[in-house]
């Protein structure tokens, strides 16, 4: 006899998924084009395409700003909901962060209940948003270049690079958790299709699942 089809629930809207994936694509383009502007001879196969790399980097940066403006204009509820999702941290969020840091064999308690975004996803969202603003401000100052005091463009340059160095482990960690951990497969499905299995929601996002079952949450 066929098993009953698992019930799916909507976790991310189309606008949220568009924001996530276009941001991810632009981030990769910015990272690679930035790397090819940064590396010197012997390390960089695109040194003789410096102007092209600079154009790609600037265009991708403009596209990133445009992405947020478009989402804000076309789907204002998306950014508002994201803001509300990351705003509140409670005791379960603190427990969740401790829980994921403890080695698996030492975890006595079950996973602390979480809302639609768990504590790690909230932190990741806040850090990424702050870094995006930081990249935009420092990048604009660098772009202003020779028209600004050298000390300001050099300070911006230093922080642009430091932000990049800080974001690489954050993004790498995000990718490892999303792609390599079987326990997060449901979350990956959610950001691809928008929907997750209800049993996944109950297991990993119990607080959110409760609101779904009470009919309080719609995407």
């Amino acid at each position: 006899m066929d098993e009953p089809r698992p019930r799916l629930v909507q976790r991310f809207s189309g606008a949220e998924r568009t924001l996530h994936w276009v941001y991810a694509l632009l981030f990769v383009i910015l990272l690679l084009s930035g790397l090819f502007l940064y590396l010197g001879p012997g390390q960089n196969p695109f040194l003789d395409r410096r102007e092209l790399m600079r154009s790609i980097h600037l265009d991708a940066a403009l596209a990133l700003v445009a992405l947020f403006l478009l989402v804000a204009a076309g789907s204002p509820g998306t950014l508002r909901r994201l803001r509300d999702d990351v705003e509140w941290f409670d005791r379960d969020d603190a427990r969740w962060l401790l829980w994921v840091l403890v080695p698996r064999r030492l975890r006595g308690r079950p996973l602390p209940p979480q809302r639609r975004l768990n504590a790690g996803q909230k932190l990741n969202t806040v850090l990424t948003a702050a870094a995006t603003v930081g990249f935009t401000v420092t990048g604009t100052l660098m772009w202003g270049g020779s028209a600004l005091p050298t000390s300001l463009s050099e300070a911006a340059d230093t922080w642009h690079l430091l932000l990049t160095e800080a974001m690489i482990p954050l993004v790498a960690g995000h990718l490892v958790v999303a792609l390599l951990f079987p326990s997060t497969r449901g979350a990956l499905r959610g950001i691809v299709t928008g929907r997750v299995r209800l049993d996944f929601a109950r297991r990993r996002h119990a607080r959110w699942a409760e609101t779904l079952e009470q009919g309080e949450d719609t995407v």
Partner: peptide, 11 residues
């Protein structure tokens, strides 16, 4: 139940 409003402050 909601905890503390930390997200925007952290940002």
């Amino acid at each position: 139940f909601r905890g503390r409003p930390i997200g925007r402050r952290l940002f």
